[in-house]
Design a protein around this nucleic acid. Sequence first.
DNA 1: ACAAAAGTGTTCAGCGTACACCCATGC
DNA 2: GCATGGGTGTACGCTGAACACTTTTGT
Lengths: 230, 230
Amino acid sequence: MPDWLKNRIKNVSTDTVIFGFDNNCIEVLLYKRAQNPSKGAWALPGGFLMQGELIEEAARRILKDTTGVADIYLEEVGVFDQIDRFPSWRVFTIGYFALVNPKRYKLISSGIFTLDANWFNIDDMPELAWDHQNIVDKALEKLQMRVLHKPIGFELLPDKFTLPHLQTLYEVVLDKKFDKRNFRKKIMHMGVLTKLNEKDRKGKKRPADLYKFNKQNYKKLVDQGMIFGI
Amino acid sequence: MPDWLKNRIKNVSTDTVIFGFDNNCIEVLLYKRAQNPSKGAWALPGGFLMQGELIEEAARRILKDTTGVADIYLEEVGVFDQIDRFPSWRVFTIGYFALVNPKRYKLISSGIFTLDANWFNIDDMPELAWDHQNIVDKALEKLQMRVLHKPIGFELLPDKFTLPHLQTLYEVVLDKKFDKRNFRKKIMHMGVLTKLNEKDRKGKKRPADLYKFNKQNYKKLVDQGMIFGI
DNA sequence: ACAAAAGTGTTCAGCGTACACCCATGC
DNA sequence: GCATGGGTGTACGCTGAACACTTTTGT
């Protein structure tokens, strides 16, 4: 019996909803399972906890194995404990959501456990294994709550981004339109964006100014009592 | 071996922070343990999950055993999974918080598991067993977030209450003062309180008007897009 | 009658919202 | 030169915040 099988905690797992933003829509990273149960089905990246491992550590380990990156935004969504959620025996899973910029990372799609990996538009996903659709739904709700008052939207963008790009992100996440002038006024007035002396020439029309998120300034302003809000 | 011991899931438990409001402060219900580990220490009411039982069901079962009531507000706080949080072996606990009106319920304080039960001012609690102080801290944070946008404060009050009483509740939960006139204006303007033709004569001075929370109206207004807020 | 808490309106400032035109570029 | 998306300022209404006096009761 290999170590990873011997040392796993058989009734506790984690599953992570990895959100990305591309093609002007929210995407979720899914894996196609190479093993039973549910061989061939699309599922969230996840796995069992190991002895002596914290749950968040496990989630980050699995993220590293799937996207190859560490140090990304990760937040607990909650526990999923329906008795029959896993067909073979009772497994409690702790759901997380992660935010990444899809362009930044290569997917690792081959392996013992996975046949394939892909980003899916959140509004156009295949049927998922077990209760994974529940986890996605709850994760999206939590993301929508969070972006209102925490500047986590920037995690989904490249370091340098344009204001129209940022606005589209918020519109897609919150499923709501914003007035261009009011959006820019509000976000610039908070003083957490730094305008760069560069323009984005990837668009086909007039180039847009590039900005970056000023983390130092954000922290300073929060200490002074500022509350981020869209 | 008794059934409850045979059928428990040895590595998953729940612990609930029961909040009450009395003496103009937030109180937490604690139990003194009659058994090892941590015999004699104060702890949150909690216990192991049973086979075939949902975690929230377990939390409600334990609440029933400790306060004698069902049908109270209950919300998940999160998972607590520090490796050594429970001294004997690794136990994952799911924290919840509950809101009750302390006057309404008798405590059940004697039993195999508990020596004593008591309400404690949240700012003046004894040292708690294991990581239970962490659970209380995180539960309080979550409560503070929730009361801002959901009318759960009423769960902590009797059915009939006065506006000064309600205001004090919010002031204590959020650790913040409100202007009497603005508070009344705002809460009344939302249209979720019904004024009764009764006065509270328990005070020593001018009697205050009694109100009740109008749940039907609240639901109707939410359907119309109203967002509760303090 | 007096002490103590309950109850009541108005004013002002700041923020969210609605709204229309010029600008820079690719084609 | 024209089509396309980027960038900019102002006016108004509403909501949140500050503020003081009268009313009702118990003692």
